[in-house]
């Protein structure tokens, strides 16, 4: 098991390989469909994203009578929807990591290699385990997109993920897909 601590650096990212379980401690910024499209279309990022990690997540947020926020569930959402945008955002904003679920495609794989970035897979559906790792909501940006689409700045400790695309261009998703495809062909006798 490896640790990844804030501030994140390119060296630390290069050290991560497909299959590594990693505990992240530090900052994460949630970004899902609306934020990705916005940044891709040239929208200005409300925070400096250089060397940061984006988290594909639409949290359940509660606000109490005093206006204070708390997280009531924050697992990853499916990442493939960001496939058209992700690599461009890596290039333009210099992010070092993306956390999500379900893996990403060839463009992102290329991007990870070119711009030194990793794809970190969190356990889909593990909203409570993962939100228990959030120590603090530091801020919220792009609130107009609605609470689950907004960009939340989170402080996490020992946030568990596994590397499924690394900066050298390996992808666990490709391996599993190829293997399972050929298994099915064998099982069904298809040539």
């Amino acid at each position: 098991m490896k640790k990844l601590n804030y501030p994140y650096t390119q060296e630390a990212i290069r050290d991560l390989q497909v299959g590594d379980v990693v505990m992240i401690s530090g900052k994460l910024f949630t970004a899902r469909d609306a934020v990705h499209k916005y940044l891709y279309d040239g929208g200005r990022s409300p925070v400096e994203l250089k060397n940061q990690i984006l988290y594909h997540c639409g949290p359940v947020i509660l606000q109490d009578a005093r206006g204070l926020y708390s997280v009531n569930g924050a697992g990853p959402t499916t990442s493939t929807r960001q496939e058209p945008y992700q690599s461009a955002i890596m290039e333009k904003h210099g992010i070092l990591g993306v956390i999500g679920k379900g893996g990403m495609g060839p463009k992102t794989l290329e991007g990870c290699k070119k711009f030194t970035c990793v794809y970190l897979h969190a356990i889909g559906g593990a909203a409570q385990v993962l939100s228990a790792k959030i120590e603090k909501i530091v801020g919220v940006y792009l609130k107009d997109f609605g609470p689950s689409e907004a960009m939340w700045e989170l402080e996490v400790r020992d946030f568990p993920v596994i590397v499924t695309i690394d900066a050298s261009g390996s992808s666990l998703h490709e391996d599993v897909k190829k293997h399972s495809e050929s298994r099915l062909k064998e099982l069904l006798n298809i040539r």
Binding site: G73, A74, I123, G124, A126, A127, Q128, V129, A132
Partner: peptide, 20 residues
């Protein structure tokens, strides 16, 4: 982690997954 999540959600009476 899935099993831990199942226990935790029940204890906290909170959503198992944030996509409800």
């Amino acid at each position: 982690l899935m099993e831990e999540n199942i226990k935790l959600a029940k204890e906290k009476s909170a959503p198992l997954c944030q996509d409800t």
